Amino acid sequence: MSTPDPSTSDSTPIRTGIIGYGLSGRVFHAPFIAANPRFSLDVVATSHAGRQTVARSQHPTVETVDTPAELVARQLDLVVLASPGHAHLEQGLAALAAGSALVVDKPFAASVAEAEQLITAAEAAGRPLMVFQNRRWDGDFLTVQKLLSEGALGTVHRFESTFERWSPGLRDRWQDTSTSGQGAGITFDLGSHLIDQALHLFGPATITDAELSILRAGGVSDDEAFISLLHSSGTRSHLTISRFAGQNGPRFRVLGDRSAFTSYGLDGQEPALGAGGSPSDPGFGIASEESWGTIGITGSEEFPLTKVPTERGDYAAFYRGAAAAIRDGALPPVDPREALETLRIIEGVHGFSR
Score class of each variant (00 low, 15 high):
I195V: 15
R251W: 12
R251K: 14
V54I: 15
E116A: 07
G274R: 15
E338N: 14
R312A: 09
E338M: 12
Y264N: 09
F39D: 01
R236I: 06
P6D: 09
E160W: 08
E150F: 09
E164R: 13
G183I: 01
Q145K: 15
G191V: 06
A55D: 06
H88I: 07
R251N: 14
P168C: 00
L153R: 02
L93W: 01
T208G: 04
V104Q: 01
S233I: 08
V220S: 02
T187W: 01
R158H: 12
L239P: 12
V220I: 05
W166P: 05
L118F: 02
G185S: 06
A35S: 13
D77E: 08
L199C: 04
G268V: 11
N36W: 02
H29K: 07
F159W: 10
R51Q: 15
G218C: 02
E311M: 09
D314S: 15
F108W: 04
A49D: 14
V54L: 07
H59I: 03
A225W: 03
G169S: 14
G191P: 07
D77K: 06
G154Q: 05
P279F: 07
V112N: 03
E150S: 10
S291Y: 07
P60Q: 04
H200Q: 15
F188Y: 13
R327D: 09
L148F: 06
T61I: 02
A121I: 12
S11K: 12
D223F: 03
W166D: 03
Q58R: 14
D267F: 03
G293D: 00
A125M: 02
S192V: 05
P31S: 02
A322G: 01
L102G: 01
V54C: 03
T16N: 08
P107T: 11
K106S: 09
F252V: 03
L266E: 13
F163P: 00
A225H: 03
R127K: 15
G183R: 02
P6W: 09
A205F: 09
F352L: 11
L190W: 07
E341T: 10
S40G: 10
V334M: 08
R243A: 04
A45G: 10
L273D: 05
A125K: 00
A110E: 09
P333G: 12
A275G: 10
Y315E: 01
R158T: 14
A115S: 03
D257C: 07
G249R: 11
A113D: 15
D281L: 12
G191F: 04
L147D: 02
F28V: 06
S57V: 08
G126N: 01
G299R: 15
G25Q: 10
G169K: 14
V349N: 10
R173C: 10
S47D: 13
L340H: 04
V43T: 10
G22H: 11
A73V: 03
P37M: 07
H59A: 02
A184E: 08
F303Q: 11
P168D: 02
R26N: 01
V54T: 12
A35C: 00
L118V: 04
T143G: 06
P282G: 08
T262V: 15
H88K: 13
